[in-house]
Computed example of a mutant assay.
Amino acid sequence: MKRLLYPTLTVAGVMSFGMGQAIADPLYIGAYGGSTEKAMKEKIIPAFLENHDAEVIYVPGNSTDTLAKLQAQAGNQELDVVLMDDGPMYQAINLGFCSPLSGMKSLDDVYDVARFSNDNAVGIGLVATGFAYNAEMFKRNGWAPPSSWQDLADKKFEGKLVVPSISNTYGLHTLVMAARLNGGGENNI
């Protein structure tokens, strides 16, 4: 392992550590694509580079892609900083990819709910999972808005639902709720 792995920290927070220092090796960041990648490349990384003599290599991917990269690189980590959803992050911790963040003064400023056990990772946001629906379409069809997960099993929604992949938090939450509705749960999908 080249360096300690600092998962789920905001990159700006990690990058402000040791301001003005030169970083000999490239700093590899594994994080989300899309708008996160754009913000990192246009705002956060340039601000970091104003204070550091470094090369930053951004490796985009969803959380499960990033976890797979960590597993493929086991024993010879290339990724130095990663941002992942909480489920894959717990897996990364359990697989030993995350070093404790002990001694970092900035941890005192982190809400308890955002601190993973043993301070092996820090959350950067909270997510709530729920339904979004087209109110106009529901009104036009005389349908009541969905009020429970069970409502989604109604035949009238067949072919009309969009559920994200279980490779992200929203899709995984939907899978767990479907399991619970059918007598299962997290340990019995």
Rank of each mutant, 00 (worst) to 15 (best):
N118A: 13
A179V: 12
P88H: 05
N51R: 13
A128N: 15
D119A: 01
A128Q: 12
H52L: 01
N94W: 11
L172D: 11
Y32A: 13
K69W: 09
G13R: 09
A72P: 02
S106Q: 15
F116K: 07
A114F: 15
N120H: 11
F138V: 00
L70V: 04
A144H: 04
K160R: 15
Q21P: 03
H173R: 06
V127F: 11
G34A: 13
N182S: 14
V81C: 01
Y32I: 04
E50K: 15
A178S: 09
F131K: 09
G125K: 13
A54Y: 00
A39Y: 14
V14H: 07
L79F: 11
Y58D: 00
T8A: 09
P46T: 00
G183W: 07
I45P: 04
H52Y: 03
L4C: 00
G13A: 13
E37V: 00
D85Q: 05
L95P: 01
A153H: 09
E37R: 14
G171P: 02
A114L: 14
A72M: 10
V122G: 00
V122M: 04
Q71C: 02
L107A: 00
Y58H: 11
G13V: 08
N76A: 15
N94S: 11
P60C: 10
M40W: 10
Q150N: 06
S16I: 02
S165R: 07
Y6Q: 07
G171L: 06
M177R: 12
L70K: 05
H52V: 07
I29H: 04
D86C: 04
K41N: 12
A132L: 14
L101Q: 01
K69L: 10
Y90V: 07
G142L: 09
L95W: 02
K2E: 05
G96S: 03
K139R: 14
K105P: 04
I189H: 12
Y90G: 00
G33F: 08
Y170N: 09
D85E: 13
G75Q: 04
Y28F: 15
V59K: 00
G159F: 06
P88E: 01
T8E: 14
L5F: 04
A74T: 09
N134Y: 04
K43R: 13
E186H: 02
L9H: 08
A74M: 07
R180K: 15
T129R: 05
